[in-house]
Design a protein around this nucleic acid. Sequence first.
RNA 1: GCCGCCGUAGCUCAGUCGGCAGAGCGGCUGAUUUGUAAUCAGCAGGUCGGGGGUUCAAUUCCCUCCGGCGGCUCCA
Length: 639
Amino acid sequence: MRLAETIDVTFPDGSRLSQPPGRTAGELLSAWHPEKAAEYLAARLDGLLIDLARTVDRSGPLWPVTFEDRVGREILHHSAAHVVAKAVTVAAPGSLPTVGPGSEEGFYYDFDMPPITPELFERIRSVSQRIVSEDQPFERREVSREEALRLFALNPHKRGYVEKAAAGEGITIYRTGDWIDLCRGPHVPSTRWLAGLYLLGFSGVTQGGAPGGLPLQRVRGVAFPTRALLEEYRTMRREAEARDHRILGSRLELFHFVEEAPGLPFWLPRGMIVLRELEKFVGEHLRDAGYSEVRTPLLFSSTVFETSGHWEHFRDNMFLTSVDGRPYGVKPMNCPGAMLVFRARARSYRELPLRLAEWAPLHRLEASGTLHGLTRVRGFTQDDAHIFLTEEQIETEVRTLLRWIREAFSTFDLAWKLELSTRPEKFLGEIAQWDRAEALLRGVLDSSGAPYHVNPGDGAFYGPKIDVYVRDSIGRSWQTGTIQVDYQQPIRFGLEYQGADGGLHRPIVVHRTVLGSFERFTGILLEHCAGRLPPWLAPVQVRLLPVSERHLARAEELAREWRGQGIRAEASDSATTLSKRVRAGEVEKVPYLAVVGDTEIATGQVTLRIHGEKAPRALAAAEAAALLVDRIRQRSFRP
RNA sequence: GCCGCCGUAGCUCAGUCGGCAGAGCGGCUGAUUUGUAAUCAGCAGGUCGGGGGUUCAAUUCCCUCCGGCGGCUCCA
């Protein structure tokens, strides 16, 4: 026995501690910073995640894991999943827990059990709370395979996981009170650390997500180390609900849906103004960047989609019909039309890059359960274009696109990031070609300085792509634009151009959108700005409010005058109190309200109430108009 | 599409343990002419999502279809 041996650990700040063996990670970390002991969720010893209660049996760097860390959140959420598993087995005896992972965002646990009812869900909630308040420790134990099989004798799912575990892999279990779960860990020390546990909901899922899989019941939730953090989260959620674009859209009369056309939006007059302004915004860029526009048919014979590959790969998502007894499909994407335009006559290298924009309505038969307001619809229009070019031209083109993406999203005050998706397992074409394209995209991304991360193997089967994700103001991430390098469509459609060498060559196609679809983008934008659209997009930019009937003529005169200057201005009547009309303007989120009364008429001013500013400003009428014209032309995000 | 939940006026929601369907907001009309987030009064508006069943009687109970919501899967 070597009693004299000591353990040397190094903390993140470089300080060291030598102790005789037998101390736990928690004890050592508490010795380092006792005041922070309550924040420690787990520890990292020499890179390995361990419970705080584990004995530190060797020297090395010892770091605390807290809720501030990604992995800390994961651990906390995973521990919360255990609590819920226990709660479910208490509330619904006989339920068989299967898997319950935690992530940075939250956790879920899937159970093999009859469907959960709202009443049962409430019981699960209250049992979970009770377990948290009972401060039950998470106790780790290593067990033999045989013991594990015996412990989970009643749960075939857990037995299955034990049997699947690799031969050399140690099997560990965690005990929480009288509840035992198979788990690698680590976990927080006890359920007290889950003070901010909150169940979000329940739903049916299928095992493995497979369509015919075993039906399971999922309970989802989030957890925070304190009640205060949970309250903060719930406040954010409530705010998110108030920003729901589906509600804002109908309240502001921008768009709506009818039962007879699920997933197919109606753009109402006010919404059309927003849509047309967005189109104008993108259109100006396309003109400057050397694009030309085409419009191709909405429907094609199936033979076109056979050529493009959609018939084989996408038919289930297409609206199909028949014409003269032959199968036709409504186009789900613009690319086939663009290919046919390119192929319509002989092409020269002098035409490349040939940039063909098309903003055609597209239809995809999305599964009914996935429809969601404007962000997931069956009929939409992309700010789409196809660029026919040579491999040498890709780099410059992508660079220009990234610059435009940066400019576009900053106009909308949206934070964005990029993802590079590389060659998937199932791909068409040559590896060398893929490698070249990937290296090229990577190079452009690196030199652009734009933040991005790589999704290995997530590219389309025809080529690598860069996707644009935007984050709205409450932290949700949405895919919008995409830049896809495509080698396959030109082959399928037999596209050729005559090169400077006199020979025929095959172009490459870059598919690209920036806003993505106007529909989804509008939805995102509405949520981002909570319905307070920037002045240049607002359906009504300014409303003139006469204080009383005798000021009505002046309000109408100014409204007329300002409309002449390109401002969307209107005058209210004077049938209700000014207060009420101010309130209506606020509720309708009109960015500028201009009050006209005796004082203003005497001085030739208006009192301009600018959304977001506390004090109204008294301005000469012409000055107010100039201010609006300027903000609108600048496409300023805020009024 | 799958699992669960939901569907009452334009909107937000009461209500009916099976017996003539309600409010607020909004709309319309009238009075009021208003100084920065809701003036007062009156009126109109519903086959209680569609269809079928049980019942003397169904908005209420049952079945089914449609749509919505939350997940799953998928994606602009």
